[in-house]
Amino acid sequence: MRVLVDLNRCLSYGQCVFAAPSVFRFHGAESLEYDYAPGRALAEEVRHAAAACPVQAITYAEEPSGE
């Protein structure tokens, strides 16, 4: 799947790190990093992370869209 975080909107609340620790992490105290292309097995965690984000900065697509 694909994940994208609007890091302009992100305020580093860190709820995504709790919900999906193998996809989202902090590098330093306030700098969010994440996996842009996590495996499908992590879809449930990513959905929870996106729902938990207080500023709704996370978008995702279950399938990579090929054209």
């Binding site: 694909r2 994940v3 994208l4 996996d35 842009y36 292309a37 978008t59 697509a61 399938e63 869209s65």
Partner: peptide
Amino acid sequence: AHTALVRAP
């Protein structure tokens, strides 16, 4: 190779 943008399907 893994920073492709999420896009509308």
